[in-house]
């Protein structure tokens, strides 16, 4: 069998969280402000979604040492998060394929 198993993921499903995961999956690490700009959301909204993903252990967050100003926050997807995203995308593809059966 090839490819990830299609599994719908409740945590990843929310549009912003799906986009966050997709962005993080494409990069090793991304800075908080970059995510905010890409998603065009406020700090608080982004923080809220990152918190949900972090609680699900789908991502890790790290801050620069305190003596550096301004302190930047870097976000990375965990292996678990990547697996959840892959499964969710596979499920979306499976569903999308139902609308467009192979010619």
């Amino acid at each position: 069998m090839s490819g990830p198993e299609p599994v719908f993921d409740e945590v990843v499903h929310a549009p912003y969280r799906l986009r966050i995961c997709v962005l993080l999956a494409a990069t090793d690490t991304a800075e908080f402000s970059l995510l905010r700009e890409e998603l065009q959301v406020s700090d608080s909204v982004l923080s809220k979604h990152l918190k949900v993903l972090r609680e699900a252990k789908y991502l890790t967050m790290g801050k620069e040492p305190a003596e550096r100003a301004p302190r930047r926050t870097y976000v990375s997807l965990t292996t678990r998060g990547r697996k959840a995203l892959d499964g969710h995308l596979a499920e979306l593809r499976r569903l999308a394929a139902l609308a467009a059966p192979e010619d």
């Binding site: 549009p15 997709v22 962005l23 609308a99």
Partner: peptide, 26 residues
Amino acid sequence: PAPAPGHDPAAARAALDAASETRASL
């Protein structure tokens, strides 16, 4: 709100398109 794609292929396609667009902008 974000309805679950459930059995809706169009919604799933839209979600994939949105994700693709996000990647492309990066």
